[in-house]
């Protein structure tokens, strides 16, 4: 009897602790789950060792007027990227090189030299598109954002991404729809500092090339400017062994 009472007391004392432990464990599992999803997203987005893409960017203003840019993009891993414009004529040869630790360079052929650009330009639009320098730089979402799983449907995980303390972004948070099958994002909403929806990125025609999931089309819409940029990947080459020397100032200033 005494033992039974003692046991009940122990249970009575430990139950709330156990409850707290279970709750915290569940919460922890939830956070880990969101983090895991975002890590998978980063893995999928940066899965190819390298990629060379010829892309067509179609800029559409609020009146439906279109401008077209054609560029070549080289990417290696998740922190080396080189972009070169081929068209239009007044932007031909303009290049952008993004390296780890926010080291970025631009090359304007008219000035004959490579210019270092500082991180203040990261949130500026690149060459009139709706993509910022930051969007075009390579980065891992999980390094810059804390994820939270908002919703899980049959097809998607919906994550809320809040910039980590100390990471400067123009967005207060992002909402990301992640395809459960491929772990490739299909849509990202960008919210401004006031919490209003600002931009929407849609990724379409996601297909498997060499075991990697790749979106052949991305469209970024700026709702404030009523302007959009559609990025169409016309040619995609994956894992071709792009040498490191491509991601240097030496190659940035080369036209071809």
């Amino acid at each position: 009897m005494k033992n039974s009472r003692r046991n009940r007391r122990i249970i009575g004392v430990t139950a709330p602790l156990l409850f707290l432990f279970v709750v915290s464990l569940t919460g922890g599992l939830y956070a880990a789950s969101a983090g895991e999803i975002l890590s998978r997203v980063d893995q999928v987005m940066n899965a190819p060792k390298d990629r060379k893409v010829t892309m067509k960017m179609v800029l559409v203003d609020k009146n439906g007027n279109e401008k077209v840019r054609i560029a070549e993009s080289y990417q290696k891993g998740d922190d080396h990227r080189l972009i070169k414009f081929l068209e239009p004529a007044d932007q031909k040869g303009v290049g952008f090189l993004s390296l780890p630790n926010d080291v970025m360079y631009v090359y304007f052929p008219a000035f004959k030299k490579v210019r270092r650009i500082a991180s203040h330009v990261k949130n500026s639009n690149f060459a009139g598109t709706d993509f910022t320098y930051d969007d075009l730089s390579t980065f891992k979402y999980s390094e810059d954002y804390n994820p939270e799983l908002l919703e899980e449907t049959d097809s998607f995980y919906v994550l809320k991404l809040v910039p980590k303390p100390g990471v400067k972004k123009d967005y207060s948070f992002l909402k990301m729809w992640v395809d459960k099958g491929s772990f490739h994002p299909t849509k990202v909403e960008f919210y401004d500092k006031s919490g209003n929806l600002w931009k929407v990125l849609k990724m379409r025609e996601i297909e498997k090339i060499k075991d990697y999931f790749v979106a052949r089309e991305m469209e970024m819409k700026d709702l404030k400017k009523q302007h959009s940029t559609k990025m169409i990947m016309e040619e995609i080459e994956l894992d071709t062994g792009i040498p490191d020397k491509i991601f240097t100032k030496r190659y940035l200033r080369r036209t071809r």
Binding site: D102, R115, R116, I117, A118, S119, H120, K168
Partner: peptide, 11 residues
Amino acid sequence: FSGSLFGLGFW
């Protein structure tokens, strides 16, 4: 020299 400090470009 050129580089970035506190988000500003310096050269």
